[in-house]
Simulated assay, not measured.
Amino acid sequence: MKISRKEAETIFLAKNLDLIAQKLEISQAEARAVQAKYWPNPTLSISEVNLWRTYDIEEQPALIRNWGKSTQISAEIEQVIQTAGKRRKNIELQKIEVEGEKYELQEVLRELKKTLRNTITEILYNQEQQKIYQGQIASIEKLTKSYNNQLNLGNISKAEYVRLKAQEIEFKKKLVSLKQEIEEQQVELKALLMLPSQTYLEISDSLVMPEKQLSELEVTQWMEKAKENRPDIMISKNKEKHAAKNLEIQNAMKTPDVAVSIGYDRGGNIMKDFIGLGVSMDLPIFDRNKGNIQEAKLEIEKSKLETRKNMMKSDNEIVSVFRNYIRTQQVSQEIDENYESTLDGLLVSHEKNFRLRNISMLEYMDFLDTYIGNKMIILDTKKELNQYYENLQYVVGQDL
C-alpha cells in the first residue's frame, strides 16, 4: 500500500485511538462542568409513622376515607443552600478543567505527530538505502556470475572470485537488516494509523531536504511563540489557574452551608396538624479549613515554579535544536547539487572498466566503498535535517 506523508497524517488525525480517547476526556470534563451547575437535591424524610393503634389515643380526622383516625406521621423537606459563592466557584473550576483537557489533547497530538513524522522519515531513509543496496546487488551478481565462468575456465584466481562473492553476501546481509528495521518501523506506523497487521506501507515521497529556510533571527520569535502555543506550558499555566480557583473554594469552605427545612407533624404534639420552619448550619468553632487553605496556597507556588521551569526548558530546547539543525545544514551545503549524479556516473564507469579489466578489483572495491559511504552521508544529512526540523516544530509547539 503506497501512501504519502500528507495522506498518513490525514489518516492519523481521523483514526488514532489515543487522540479519540483524549477527545473523550474533554467530553467527560464538559459533562462534569454541566453537573456542577445543578443545585443539591432537597431531602425528604418521613418518620414517626405508627403501624398499630395504641391505648388512650386521641382520634383525629381521617386521612383517606376512614383510614388515619389513629395514625401519627411526621414529614420534612430540607434544602441545602451553598454559601460564599461555592457553587459558582466550583462551576468556574470545572471550566478550567475542561480547558486543561483541551491542552492535554494538544500535548498528545504534539507528541504523536513528532513520532509519526520521524517514523515516516526513518522509513524513507531505509527505503533509499534499500534502493542503493538492491542496485549494487543486481550489479555485483552479474559480475560474480561472470567471474565464476572465468574461474571455471582458469582465467582468474579463486581468491578474486571469493572476494567478489564475499562483497555480494555482505550487501545481501545489509539488505536483510534494512528490511528488518523497516518491519519494526511498520509496526509503529500501523499502530499510529490504526491499519490492519497484514498491511505493508510504502511511503511514496522522496527523502528531500526541508524546503523552509530558517534564520537565527527567528529564534527569539520562536521562544515567544512557544510560551503562547506549547501545550506543556499551557498545561502549567492552566494548573496555576486551577490552583488559584481551588484556593478561592477552600476559603469559601470556611463559611458553613445553610440547610432550610419545612416540616409537618400530625398528632405528635399539642397541635394536631403542625407545620414549622427550620434552619441548620455547622458552627465553625473547631474546623476553619486552615489545613486545606494552606495546601492550596502551596499548590499555587508549586504550579508557578512548574510553569517557570517549562518556559526555561522550552528556550533551551529551541536554541539547542536550532544549532544542531544549522550544523547539519552547513554539511549539506558542502554537497554540490550534481555531486550525487556524478557519483552514480562514476560508479557506472568503474563497473564497465572492471568488466573490461582496465582497473583492478582492489580499485573497484575501493571506489565501491567510497560510493556507498558518500551515498550514506547524503542520506544521513537529509534524514537528520528532517528530524531536526521536526524537532524544532515540536519544541516551538506549532508547524513552522
Rank of each mutant, 00 (worst) to 15 (best):
K173N: 08
E181V: 13
M209I: 05
L175W: 13
L164S: 04
L151R: 05
L217W: 06
L151C: 05
F171M: 03
N155G: 11
N152S: 13
S157T: 04
I169Q: 11
E211T: 10
E218T: 06
N152K: 07
L151A: 05
P196H: 04
K179G: 09
Q167K: 07
Q213A: 11
A166D: 12
M209P: 10
I156H: 02
T199Q: 12
V162I: 15
Y161S: 04
I182N: 03
Q186N: 03
E181L: 12
Q185I: 08
V176W: 08
E168W: 09
L164F: 15
E188F: 12
S157E: 04
I156P: 00
V208Q: 05
Q213M: 12
A159I: 08
K190W: 06
L153F: 05
L175V: 01
N155T: 05
L201I: 02
G154V: 00
K179P: 13
N155E: 15
M194N: 14
L217Q: 06
D205R: 02
P196V: 00
K179V: 11
E181S: 09
A191S: 12
I156F: 04
K212E: 11
L189H: 06
S206P: 10
K174S: 05
S197E: 07
L178K: 02
S206D: 14
D205K: 05
P210T: 02
E170V: 10
K212G: 09
I156S: 01
V176S: 14
L201M: 03
L189A: 04
L195Y: 07
E184M: 08
Y161K: 03
E188M: 06
L164V: 01
D205H: 04
V208S: 15
P210V: 00
Y200D: 08
L175Y: 07
I156D: 02
E181T: 10
L192C: 03
E184I: 14
F171V: 00
K172I: 05
